[in-house]
């Protein structure tokens, strides 16, 4: 049996989990402020075992600034690459992703509408923005795909990318319009158009985790269906996949993941494009391996991108969206070139 066909063995999972945790620790230990490794480990160790921690700057920075941020970054990475991998399978298109399809812009628009019109959910900070971001991510996805199917039933790369670009421009023009009319709240709104996880706290990480557990379960339990859809929608129907239901399930889960990431960190482009693609080159297209491997890959990639943003120009920060877009657009061109050449 070829090793690429089966789900990973537990040893492979353990290895991926360990390296992700190692990177997580590295990202907590390194930062704009130098804290001795021993201090960092003491703080983490004592917290894990519930021992008292000496109060002070190190404790604040590690437990209240770095750890929640690194956790949020990792969870965003997992969510974005999982949704990217699922959409690329569903649409049989290696360039599909929240940012290329315009779903992220749709989610930003939703969040901005919530802020501009003061929609809130009592008790949950930014709950209104989060709910609206998810809703708008889903609506945008449905709109984009309906339109794409009408234009070109085979959902060719060019069609999807073109519609994604147009939809992004459309969403941004609406956003500009709202900014024009909302005067005072302009600044608060501008945030949703740039990606930043700098101020992430434990509530953000918790919101990401809950969404990830729910939507991740939906997507991971559909890996066989995603394999079938990635091979062909008609073929999937013929072998007994309930295509409509699976599509709806994947679309809802993907847009919820994108929505929550946008509401926590703004638009962080291209993660969902780059990671599943690189992972596919390593472990093959079978979603039983691809999905889990992409999740770990996404966490590691985004944590390292964030670390670079924090450390390179210290004390200044490079926004994480800038770093991912730089890497992402290069990979995008590479994939686009190769898929076009293959035709």
């Amino acid at each position: 049996m070829d090793r690429r066909k089966r789900p990973f063995r537990w040893t492979a999972y353990a290895l991926m989990l360990l390296s992700t945790i190692a990177i997580l620790l590295l990202c907590v230990c390194m930062g704009s402020v130098n804290i001795p490794l021993a201090d960092t480990l003491t703080v983490i160790w004592n917290t894990l075992w519930g021992r008292p921690i000496p109060q002070g700057m190190s404790r604040s920075i590690i437990l209240l600034v770095r750890l929640p941020r690194v956790l949020s970054v990792a969870l965003c990475g997992v969510s974005l690459s999982l949704s990217g991998a699922a959409m690329q399978g569903l649409l049989r298109n290696p360039l599909a992703d929240g940012s290329t399809l315009g779903v992220s812009s749709g989610a930003s628009l939703g969040a901005i509408l919530a802020i501009a019109f003061g929609l809130t959910i009592p008790g949950v900070s930014y709950g209104g923005a989060m709910a609206m971001a998810m809703l708008f991510a889903f609506l945008s996805l449905v709109f984009i795909l309906t339109f794409a199917y009408r234009l070109d039933h085979s959902l060719a790369t060019n069609t999807i990318i073109l519609i994604g670009v147009i939809f992004t421009m459309f969403a941004h023009s609406i956003i500009s319009l709202i900014i024009t009319f909302s005067g005072d709240k302009v600044k608060s709104i501008m945030f949703w158009t740039m990606g930043s996880l700098a101020g992430s706290n434990y509530q953000n990480a918790l919101a990401l985790l809950i969404t990830l557990v729910l939507c991740g379960a939906l997507i991971l339990s559909s890996s066989r269906e995603l394999n079938a859809l990635a091979i062909g929608e008609d073929n999937a129907r013929y072998i007994g996949v309930d295509v409509k239901r699976v599509k709806l399930r994947i679309l809802i889960a993907s847009s919820a993941l994108i929505g929550v990431c946008v509401s926590v960190g703004g638009t962080i482009g291209f993660v969902g494009l780059v990671i599943p693609h690189m992972t596919r080159m390593l472990v093959g297209p079978n979603h039983r391996r691809l999905l889990t491997a992409s999740m770990f890959g996404g966490a590691v990639f985004l944590m390292l991108a964030d670390l670079a943003g924090r450390v390179l120009l210290s004390p200044l920060e490079i926004p994480i969206g800038v770093i991912t877009s730089l890497i992402g657009s290069a990979v995008f061109v590479y994939i686009f070139y190769h898929t076009r050449k293959a035709r």
Binding site: G31, S32, V33, M57, S60, I61, V65, R66, R69, A198, G199, R310, S314, P315, L316, E317, P319
Partner: peptide, 10 residues
């Protein structure tokens, strides 16, 4: 410039 939160704390 945009600065790191931990720099303020330090």
């Amino acid at each position: 410039g945009e600065i790191s939160q931990e720099q303020v704390l330090m």
